[in-house]
């Protein structure tokens, strides 16, 4: 007697195991290498060597002098703009710069106002960036646009010791 087997419907299934293995490997690689990047930007400072533009003694347009004092630990103790003490308040410094420079159209080229930053050697670098931020402009509260103040920034000679 002939036994007839029921025709089984063959399932045409792909073997997914190897693909899933690779996919998970890729996923692990991307998860491990993923790092949230912080947005970064630059303050551009053009400082040719002394002799070309550093000496401003015979220059009629003398740069503003910003002096930053620090204590032994590098904390900011006082800010002086043209020998005018303004505590440690960067907003006050900005207000003073606005009063000096005005908020009109920024002067393009080399004829704009210039500021020389003279800091104590051990002052925290973050305070210098705060000072540069205060003198170079501010963000308008209403429009969110950046209003530029002083674009030419230079450093005095380092005060070692």
């Amino acid at each position: 007697m002939r036994i007839r087997r029921e025709v089984e419907q063959e399932k045409n299934e792909l073997n997914m195991t190897s693909m899933i293995d690779i996919v998970f490997l890729l996923l692990v690689f991307f998860v491990m290498t993923f790092k949230i990047v912080e947005m970064e930007g630059d303050f551009t400072v053009r400082m040719p060597l002394a002799g070309n533009g550093q000496s401003s003694t015979d220059d009629l347009n003398l740069p503003y002098k910003l002096r930053l004092h620090a204590d032994g630990k590098g904390a900011l103790t006082s800010i002086e703009l043209n020998s005018m003490n303004m505590g440690t308040d960067f907003d006050k410094l900005r207000a003073e710069i606005v009063a000096l420079v005005g908020t009109g159209e920024p002067i393009e080229g080399d004829s704009g106002p210039e500021i020389e930053i003279d800091t104590d050697y051990n002052l925290r670098y973050a305070h210098v960036i705060q000072a540069i931020t205060a003198v170079s402009g501010y963000r308008d509260q209403g429009t969110g646009q950046v209003v530029k103040l002083i674009e030419k920034i230079k450093f005095a000679k380092p005060r070692r010791g």
Binding site: L68, A70, N122, R124
Partner: peptide, 9 residues
């Protein structure tokens, strides 16, 4: 941010 400003100069 905590390095000495003089170092940058």
């Amino acid at each position: 941010q905590d390095t000495a400003a003089g170092q940058i100069q």
